[in-house]
Each structure stands twice: as structure tokens, then as C-alpha cells.
Deep mutational scan, measured.
Amino acid sequence: VTLFVASYDYEARTEDDLSFHKGEKFQILNSSEGDWWEARSLTTGETGYIPSNYVAPV
């Protein structure tokens, strides 16, 4: 399981994006799509795309 933590807050801009807060942890589901990764929030359980430059490895 690949875990990352949010370095910043992010507000979703499309329905496919995932909003999150600094400190929130994610399981990365797919990182092969470039700068936007499909992730599941371990806080909310929601799945969506997050900007990879807003998160760091745990």
C-alpha cells in the first residue's frame, strides 16, 4: 500500500477531483496518469484525482 500525506489544502475544481485538507492521508490507487493521481482518502473514504505536487510520501 502506497501512502501519501497532504502538504496543503486543495479544493476540487471538477467532479473527478478530490478536495482535501493538509495532513489528510491517502492510498494511491493509480499514479500512471502524470501529475494527477487517483487516490482514496483514508479520512473520508472518498476516491478521486489529486494533484501529485500537493502530497508527500508518509
Rank of each mutant, 00 (worst) to 15 (best):
Y49A: 04
A12K: 08
I28G: 01
E15Q: 12
A6M: 00
S31I: 11
S52T: 07
Q27V: 15
G48I: 03
E15W: 09
T2L: 14
E24Y: 04
E33P: 10
S7T: 15
Y54T: 06
Q27Y: 13
G23T: 01
F20T: 03
D16L: 14
A39W: 00
T44M: 01
W37Q: 02
S41I: 06
R13N: 09
A6K: 00
E15T: 12
A56K: 15
T43M: 09
V58S: 08
S52H: 08
A56I: 14
D9M: 04
F26H: 00
P51Y: 07
V5P: 03
L42H: 04
S52Y: 07
Y54G: 07
P51A: 03
F26R: 00
A56E: 14
S41H: 06
D35N: 09
D35P: 10
P57K: 08
A12P: 04
F26V: 03
L18V: 05
D35I: 10
E24G: 01
G34C: 13
G48P: 00
G48F: 04
P57T: 06
L42F: 06
T14G: 15
K25W: 14
P51V: 02
E33K: 13
D17R: 15
A12Y: 02
F4D: 04
T14S: 14
D9K: 03
A56G: 08
A56C: 14
F4S: 04
D17F: 15
L42I: 09
E38I: 15
S32R: 10
R40L: 11
Y49S: 05
S52R: 12
D17Y: 14
Y8G: 07
E11M: 10
A6W: 01
S19E: 03
N53L: 09
V58C: 12
R13Y: 08
N53P: 06
L29D: 04
Y8D: 11
E15P: 13
K25P: 05
I28L: 06
L3Y: 13
S32M: 12
S32K: 10
W37L: 08
S41Y: 02
Y10C: 05
E46R: 14
V5R: 05
A12D: 02
E46Q: 14
T2S: 10
L29Q: 05
A39M: 04
Y49D: 02
L42G: 02
E15L: 11
S52L: 05
G23C: 05
G34P: 14
S31F: 15
I50F: 01
S31W: 13
G45W: 06
S31P: 09
D16Q: 14
Y54R: 08
D16A: 14
L18D: 00
L29F: 06
F26C: 04
V58T: 07
T44F: 02
V58N: 06
T2M: 12
A12I: 02
S7D: 09
P57S: 07
P57L: 08
S31E: 08
G34L: 11
V55Q: 03
D17W: 11
N30H: 08
L3E: 10
E24K: 00
I50E: 00
R40H: 06
N30T: 08
E46V: 09
T47V: 14
G23K: 02
F20M: 09
A39S: 02
E11L: 10
E24D: 15
L42S: 03
E46C: 14
E33M: 14
E24A: 05
K22S: 07
A56L: 12
L29E: 04
F26Y: 01
E46I: 10
L3P: 05
S31H: 10
S19I: 01
V55T: 04
S7I: 15
K22E: 07
F4N: 04
N30C: 10
F26Q: 01
I50P: 01
D16C: 15
S19A: 06
T44H: 04
Y10P: 01
S7C: 15
Y49L: 14
T14L: 09
G34D: 12
V1L: 13
K22C: 07
K22D: 03
Y8I: 09
E11Y: 09
Y8C: 15
N53Q: 11
V1T: 14
Y54S: 12
L3R: 05
L18G: 01
A39R: 00
D35M: 11
F4P: 04
Y54L: 14
L18H: 01
N53C: 14
G34W: 09
V55D: 03
I50D: 01
R13Q: 14
Y10F: 09
N53M: 11
F20Q: 00
L3C: 13
V58A: 09
D35W: 09
L42W: 05
V1N: 14
F20P: 00
T44A: 02
N30S: 10
P51T: 01
G48E: 00
Q27D: 07
V5Q: 09
V1H: 13
K22T: 07
E38Y: 15
V1G: 14
R40Q: 08
F20H: 00
R40W: 06
F4A: 10
V5F: 06
Y54A: 14
Q27C: 13
E33A: 13
G45P: 00
S41T: 03
S52Q: 07
Y49W: 15
E33D: 15
Y54D: 03
V5W: 06
G45A: 04
E46G: 07
V5E: 13
L3K: 05
T2Q: 13
T14K: 13
V58P: 05
V5C: 08
R13C: 15
L3A: 07
L3I: 15
S7G: 09
S52P: 08
I28K: 03
G48Y: 04
D17G: 15
D17E: 15
T47W: 08
G45S: 05
F26N: 00
T2N: 12
Q27T: 09
F4K: 04
E15K: 13
K25V: 15
I50H: 00
V5A: 07
H21P: 05
A39D: 01
V58W: 10
W37F: 08
Q27L: 14
S7W: 14
N53A: 14
K22V: 10
A39Y: 02
K25N: 07
E38W: 15
L29M: 08
E38G: 04
V5G: 03
A6T: 04
Y49H: 07
E24M: 05
G48L: 03
W37C: 03
W37R: 01
R40P: 00
R13S: 10
